[in-house]
Nucleic acid binder design. Sequence first.
DNA 1: GACTCATATTTGTTGGTCAAATAGCGTGCC
DNA 2: GGCACGCTATTTGACCAACAAATATGAGTC
Lengths: 242, 242
Amino acid sequence: MNTSSLDVEEQEPRSVVDDVVAQMRELISERGLTVGDQLPTEKELCEAFGASRNTVREAMRILKAYGVVKVRQKVGATIVDNRMSSAMEMFSFNVMEISRDTFSDIQGFRCLLEVSSVEELFDKITDEDIGDLRDINAKLLTTEGVEFAAEQDFLFHTRLIQVLRNKAILDVYGLMKPVILRIIQKGKTRRTFENDTYREHEEVIDAIAARDRIAYQYLMKTHLEAGYAHFNVTDPFPEKPK
Amino acid sequence: MNTSSLDVEEQEPRSVVDDVVAQMRELISERGLTVGDQLPTEKELCEAFGASRNTVREAMRILKAYGVVKVRQKVGATIVDNRMSSAMEMFSFNVMEISRDTFSDIQGFRCLLEVSSVEELFDKITDEDIGDLRDINAKLLTTEGVEFAAEQDFLFHTRLIQVLRNKAILDVYGLMKPVILRIIQKGKTRRTFENDTYREHEEVIDAIAARDRIAYQYLMKTHLEAGYAHFNVTDPFPEKPK
DNA sequence: GACTCATATTTGTTGGTCAAATAGCGTGCC
DNA sequence: GGCACGCTATTTGACCAACAAATATGAGTC
């Protein structure tokens, strides 16, 4: 069921490249290297690890893909921390249909983030935040196509999360962006955004402005669950048994 | 402040490898490839993209690092979806100290996940779940070293999250594992786990068993915030201005 | 049909070449 | 001295060719 965290994956014989990656990790750890520090040159790494340059390069590609190093010609490899944006990159691959389970899981997550956080949200929100929310929502009426509308829809919810001033939560929300965007678009037309979505957002903002906890929670929950109808009606899910 | 989502990073001229990665994405998208399907061989990709084999290989390494493909000799590249475990890999790099901000953000997140989800938690939790929690917590008394204790501590909280039956939330929790582990260990000894942590967990379990919402929320919040003392007292943070 | 084995194909690794970028150094000028 | 400029050595980027290792495939045998 869950293939992500706990299963014991059969370990294939580690390739030389994987080995070099591991040694690079050790090197970073041992020397206590951190953001801004330089790694040795490719040549030095070759000698240190006894691997060919291509192998070292492939290992370096992995670190770059992880967003852990940044390489510039002549300068060499510098340690950075772009792991969050790298993670976004990787989750933007459309390698599979969104299953009904994934959909309801993500929606449940959003519910937790946006509905259950009401206390902290009402605590921290300012008039400026509310103004921004109205501005963003207004753009839903400009009818620039479904993709644009979906972006604005997502931006609205992101702006709301931003009020919590919690980078970890904001990052995770950004991480889920590709999936959320596809959920938002599913089964909707430009008119859906113009009519339903815009109105629902406005009602949510009104509830926030009035500091009405009950109304906010009800409206946001309803709004999030509204997507479920669109999602459910579309297709019978050609589920793919492994 | 926030380097993850919104800033406009100066775009350097894309390398050939990045280009090949982009073309592979297109190819996957166009052909509607999904988990289990095969990619063309390296040779075919070279011809299709007009790139050398090493370049194609480096691009393939990136896709492998993303957990999007799995490559076996002779068989070739198969599309998979191990992005979550790949994400865990990348976040297990210790490239930077955990800042106080990161700490409080993560703790805030955990608070949201574990405290605010009380309704759903109490709704879904079974006696079996509670039994598991007690079993896991009991292992804190076996005194096998700090690393083991920290693992058990983390496992306790993971098991709690598992009750929600939400894969997305569970995955995100797993994603934060490396950071959480370091937070858990910070400033603690084996005795801390044996005494304080064990007792706090037991109290939480008791509250759950009694279905006492108020007590649960208070105890869990207190427990999570307890780490803050350990964290704050240790060092003055040699902050590293860029 | 079932099994064995040789072979061809495909990925893994290595060594090398050339190109492109550029940090660092030296030179000359003011 | 200090500054601007250009050269050069170094380093990464891309490519090529060759061989090793793994293995899917098919021919051959019973």
